[in-house]
Simulated assay, not measured.
Amino acid sequence: MNLDLLTAVTIFVLGVLVGFEVISKVPSTLHTPLMSGANAIHGIVVIGAMFIAAASHNAIGYVLAFVAMAFGAMNVVGGYLVTDRMLHMFRTRPAAQGKDGQRPESAQEATTQGSPAQNAEVQAP
């Protein structure tokens, strides 16, 4: 094993250990927002895979570049989907509607329709 390979493996192992320690210290309430944003960083992986594909001259290089681009693209798209889903949780819900699509005219009619959370919003003064 030459010195360059040993240095690269050492940096990789240290990166894995430090990454594991940092991620394990993140509280669960912050894990999803942080990871969905961090997954967008995988766009750099896609660019790196493009460089590998451009510099490759054999089938193994092309296959590795394709796999790296596919996984990187899936991670970027997944990160944005998780972020979008998370942001949907914070949107306000529409007011309770009657059977014909109109708002109920009385509080009594509102309590017979919709979810309990919607009913509490309608009854609040």
Rank of each mutant, 00 (worst) to 15 (best):
L6H: 04
F20Q: 09
V76N: 03
L17H: 04
A73I: 06
E105N: 12
G72R: 01
M74G: 04
E109K: 15
Q113H: 08
E21V: 15
Q97T: 15
V45K: 01
G78C: 04
V18A: 15
P116D: 03
A70L: 14
R103L: 14
P104A: 05
V13E: 04
T29R: 15
A55N: 10
P27H: 03
A55I: 08
G37N: 15
N119L: 05
V46D: 01
P33Y: 03
F66L: 06
M1Q: 04
A95R: 08
G37W: 13
V13R: 14
I52H: 03
T7K: 15
G98D: 08
M69C: 07
V9Y: 06
A59Y: 07
E109F: 11
A110Y: 07
V9F: 11
V9T: 06
S106V: 10
Q118M: 09
I41L: 15
L5W: 05
E21S: 14
T32Q: 03
R93T: 11
S106L: 09
S28Y: 07
T10M: 09
V45Q: 03
Q118Y: 01
T112R: 13
A59M: 10
S56T: 05
I23H: 02
D4W: 12
Q123P: 01
A55Q: 09
G101K: 14
G15W: 11
M69W: 01
I44L: 13
T92A: 10
V122L: 08
G79N: 04
Q102H: 12
V18W: 11
L87F: 14
R103F: 13
V77H: 02
F66E: 00
A95Y: 05
G43S: 05
T92W: 02
A65V: 00
A96C: 02
D4K: 15
T112C: 07
T7H: 08
G114D: 02
L81D: 01
A53L: 06
Q102A: 14
H88R: 11
G15S: 13
V122Y: 12
F90I: 15
R93A: 12
G37C: 09
T10F: 09
T29I: 13
E105F: 06
I11P: 01
T7Y: 05
N119V: 12
H42F: 08
T92P: 01
F12L: 07
S115W: 11
Q97P: 00
V9S: 02
V9G: 00
A53R: 00
L81W: 12
R91S: 07
V45S: 04
Y80P: 00
G114E: 01
E105Y: 03
L14R: 08
V46W: 00
G43V: 08
I23T: 10
D100V: 12
M35F: 12
F12N: 04
G98Y: 05
G19K: 10
I44H: 02
V63F: 03
Q102C: 05
G19C: 07
A59N: 08
E121R: 15
P104C: 06
Y80T: 02
M35A: 02
R103H: 07
L6C: 02
M89F: 06
S28L: 11
V77L: 05
V77F: 04
V45C: 07
M86Y: 10
L5E: 09
V77Q: 00
P125L: 10
T111Q: 07
G37L: 15
Q97H: 10
A40C: 04
S115E: 10
Q108P: 00
V46I: 09
L64A: 08
G79L: 04
D84W: 14
V76F: 06
A68G: 07
P116E: 06
M74C: 09
E121T: 13
L87E: 03
